[in-house]
């Protein structure tokens, strides 16, 4: 029975000391400790979230890079294609122009040749006429002399003409 009877003194001291202990520990131990634990947990959580975010960002960047690369590749191809087309068209144009110029030059040359030919022919004609006149003159002069001589002269002139 002795054991089951709480003593007044011990109840008094236990209450007093425990309440003091509680008050002191609450402000000088538990609050700082619990706060520190909470802050640490929060910082760990934040760090984890930041890491996750960074990883997502990296993945996004990678996707973006690939997209950019793809775009660049497409652009290069289209530029090359355009350049090729431009080159082809340029070459074709040059070719056409050259053909045209040649044709024109040939035509011009032809016209020039024709003119030269005509000029030559007319010159030949005038020369023939001149020779004929000279011969005719000579013949007419010889007519006044001997007939034999006339013949001789005509042959001679004819020979001269042949020689010419």
């Amino acid at each position: 029975m002795e054991l089951l009877t709480p003593s007044l003194g011990l109840i008094f001291w236990q209450t007093l000391v425990f309440l003091l202990l509680f008050a002191i520990l609450r402000s000088f131990a538990w609050k700082p400790i619990l706060n520190a634990l909470r802050i640490r947990e929060e910082s760990i959580e934040e760090a984890l979230a930041a890491a996750e975010e960074a990883r997502d960002e990296m993945a996004n960047l990678k996707v973006g890079n690939e997209k950019l690369l793809d775009e660049a590749r497409h652009e290069r191809e289209s530029i090359l294609k355009e350049a090729r087309q431009a080159a082809t068209s340029l070459r074709d144009e040059a070719k056409n122009e050259a053909v045209k110029a040649t044709d024109k030059m040939i035509a011009e040359a032809r016209v020039a040749i024709e003119t030269e030919k005509k000029a030559a022919i007319s010159e030949v004609k005038s020369l023939v006429a001149e020779f004929s006149l000279v011969i005719a003159e000579k013949i007419i002069r010889q007519k006044l002399g001997d007939e034999k001589d006339q013949k001789k002269i005509i042959d001679k002139y004819l020979q001269d003409i042949k020689l010419n």
Binding site: I24, L25, F28, A29, W30, P32, I33, A36, L37
Partner: peptide, 10 residues
């Protein structure tokens, strides 16, 4: 014990 532990946290 606990005040020294609290100090360690600080």
């Amino acid at each position: 014990l606990f005040i020294s532990v609290a100090k360690a946290y600080k």
